[in-house]
């Protein structure tokens, strides 16, 4: 038990973080400690740890930032996560929203759209007149 004092550098042996180095940050009881460093900060059974030679100077319950500084002195990396931001994924817009976006487009495209509308009207108008004539 005395091996696993606060600041003891350990190797994690079991689980997803196996093969990564960590530091004892807090001692809960005879079997469990809290661990941080190149692993996820979590409660760990001593059976899942292998003590190493080095000791780091850390306070009881040291924060992740403090552990990070101590690890960087030794030249070790620290477990980092970059969670996805909410709403990062492009969502499909509703048709009404799409229309609004189309209207907000630059002038050049508006012109072409206007021309197309005119062309349609031109085509339609002779047909209408023919129909009227038939009537």
């Amino acid at each position: 038990m005395s091996l696993y004092e606060i600041g003891r550098l350990c190797l994690k042996i079991a689980g997803r973080d196996a093969g990564r180095k960590c530091v004892v940050v807090d001692i809960l009881d005879n079997t469990f400690v809290i661990v941080d460093g190149d692993v996820r900060r979590k409660r760990v059974n001593l059976k899942h740890l292998e003590p190493l030679n080095e000791m780091l100077k850390l306070k009881e319950g040291a924060s992740h930032e403090e552990v990070k500084k101590a690890f960087e002195k030794l030249g070790l990396s620290v477990w980092t996560t970059n969670p996805k931001k909410v709403g990062e994924r492009p969502h499909r817009k509703r048709k009404s929203q799409q229309k609004a976006a189309r209207e907000a487009k630059p002038k050049r495209k508006e012109k072409s759209a206007a021309q197309a509308v005119e062309g349609k009207e031109q085509k339609k108008s002779p047909a209408k007149t023919e129909k009227k004539k038939k009537e």
């Binding site: 190797l11 042996i13 079991a14 689980g15 997803r16 973080d17 196996a18 093969g19 292998e50 190493l52």
Partner: peptide, 22 residues
């Protein structure tokens, strides 16, 4: 998702990592 995953069982992985650390 651990070192030697799919090659060694968990108990053997522990043993190997322990020996390496020592």
């Amino acid at each position: 998702e651990r070192p030697y995953g799919g090659i060694y069982c968990s108990a053997c992985t522990r043993q190997i990592l322990r020996l390496k650390a020592r």
